[in-house]
């Protein structure tokens, strides 16, 4: 790319591209920072940090409740008579 161009042009190009890279990096950092703060506020308002007990239990439901083991080797299921 820039390496095969005449030296002055190459230099100008790389300086220009660095400029855009910096613009990109800084605006992205700004954007990311603002989004993060906004997300945090949103999560707090939504009650994500309240009642963590329920959060830790949300992976269970009536079909697969707490206290039930939900995975075993296939043969042991077959052995119980209903194998496929």
């Amino acid at each position: 790319m820039a390496h095969n161009l005449p030296p002055q042009l190459g230099e100008a190009l790389s300086r220009a591209s660095m400029f855009f890279v910096f613009i990109f990096i800084w605006s992205f950092a700004l954007f990311a920072g603002i989004t993060m703060v906004w997300l945090l506020a949103w999560a707090v308002r939504r009650g994500e940090f309240q009642n963590l007990r329920d959060a830790s239990r949300m992976i269970f439901d009536d079909g697969e409740p707490i206290g039930e083991v939900t995975d075993r080797f296939p043969e042991s299921i077959k052995a119980s008579g209903e194998g496929r």
Binding site: D61, D62, P65, I66, G67, E68
Partner: peptide, 8 residues
């Protein structure tokens, strides 16, 4: 849900 599973 909780009532059903207290036993468990």
């Amino acid at each position: 849900v909780f009532r059903i599973h207290t036993a468990a």
